[in-house]
């Protein structure tokens, strides 16, 4: 089953430059329905109002971190509970990756990254597109 490129994608980062970069790269990959949130709380609000096929989130945000966002999503009873979640972060220590995996992350990208890496990780989570 092919990936529906019309799916809604939610990107979360407190750094607007990064949101813009990720949105542009997603656009290059054919994903045009991209919503942006600048922190975890805003992301949760958006998740209440729309179905998303993928969440791509930074880790280092305030007041709610990406890891807290992930745990909240995975611990909820909402439809978003099992939405694929990719963490994109500069936190590259082993313990970070383990913590994210244990919290239910689907993949993990270390900044700085390129379009090819993003595509690879999305493919591993969503399937070929």
């Amino acid at each position: 089953m092919s990936v529906d490129k019309d799916m809604n994608v939610l990107i979360v980062d407190d750094y607007k430059t990064m949101l813009r970069i990720i949105k542009n790269l997603l656009g290059q990959l054919g994903f045009k329905n991209v919503d942006e949130a600048t922190d975890g709380t805003m992301a949760l609000e958006l998740l209440k109002g729309k179905n998303y096929g993928l969440i791509i989130s930074d880790w280092n945000m305030e007041p709610m971190t990406g890891l807290e966002l992930l745990k909240t999503i995975r611990g909820s009873n909402d439809n978003c509970k099992s939405v694929p979640f990719i963490m994109i972060t500069a936190e590259s220590k082993t313990e970070n990756v383990i913590a994210a995996r244990e919290a239910g992350v689907n993949n993990y990208i270390v900044k700085p990254f390129n379009a090819e890496t993003l595509k690879q990780k999305m493919t591993s989570v969503l399937g070929e597109f």
């Binding site: 750094y15 430059t17 970069i21 790269l25 500069a90 900044k111 700085p112 990254f113 379009a115």
Partner: peptide, 11 residues
Amino acid sequence: IKIFEACSFQD
């Protein structure tokens, strides 16, 4: 696209 990728240095 490479320029865009490189811009992530700012983050």
